[in-house]
Nucleic acid binder design. Structure first.
Lengths: 147, 147
DNA sequence: CGTATATAGATGCATATGCATATAGAGTCA
DNA sequence: TGACTCTATATGCATATGCATCTATATACG
């Protein structure tokens, strides 16, 4: 941040800086707690959660990729790892010869459930315990405006 | 997120999820704008900014590292890149034989200034233009409570 | 002093990410 | 149908990150 002579924008820059700093401070702590308990990265959790939501009809990789705001090649490689770990299953897509359909396996569901306990505890410890109810509600509303 | 039977904590989890999602959505866009204009990553900006703040007395790598919430080896490698680019200078520390002192070079100052224009524009476009004054102020207060 | 422990910083090796491009099937339209 | 374009997914190669460990100096303490 530097001089700009624009009060409103300066404040927005401050808010931006805090947003970035808070997330860059808290996310690694949460991830570290999960890792310390032997769990995979949060991206695995996000993918498995989406796949469970999708239920038995599964998801195409490109759908998951859009949902997770991932680059295509990162989705491709995350898929590899999840397949290798046995947490997702892949079948070829019948109506699109280029495509595949991913779905969560029972082992995937198990790890998702276990991760959720650890994740919830970490969110509580690093975030929820440090913010009051009113601020939580404000954040939900304000951040919810960013689509 | 899953069932927990705890209303307050559920809300905190929602706020957490939005915080993570907003930062994971906006940061890459901002970085992409900078990169499209030929600028280095934001971590370079942060380091150069801290070094400029420190002035002529410079900073020890470990101080910069703490300030930037970086792992030690990442600081070491960021230092390499900044040195190679000519944006920082390194001298040995007189009162600590293990240490060094980093300072920003004139080229570093130039790139910092130029990056700032692009960074400010990107913050405006992706963040400031999408949030109103009241919410900016709320964010500053709420996020400021985290450390 | 001498030994133990702590701190600053670097680095080899494994894994992850970004970038460019490849492959192959789908859609369009003459 | 054939030529073009578009979309879904994969991958080689370069760079970045994480992890463990190394070196060297500093500090503590008997």
């Amino acid at each position: 941040m530097a001089k700009s002579g624009d009060k409103a924008n300066d404040e927005a820059v401050t808010a931006w800086a805090r947003l970035v700093r808070v997330s860059q401070s808290l996310l690694p702590r949460v991830e570290a707690d999960l890792k310390a308990q032997g769990y995979p990265p949060l991206s695995w959790y996000d993918a498995l959660l989406e796949l469970r939501r999708a239920g038995s009809k599964g998801l195409r990789p490109f759908e998951l990729q859009q949902e997770m705001l991932l680059a295509q090649y990162n989705m491709s490689r995350l898929t590899d790892r999840l397949l290798k770990a046995g947490y997702v299953a892949r079948e070829m897509c019948e109506d699109d010869g280029r495509g595949q359909i991913l779905s969560i396996t029972p082992q995937g569901e198990t790890v998702l459930n276990n991760m959720w306990r650890a994740y919830r505890a970490a969110i509580r410890k690093h975030f929820a315990d440090r913010i009051d109810k009113k601020d939580v509600e404000s954040l939900i509303v304000i951040l919810g405006k960013f689509t």
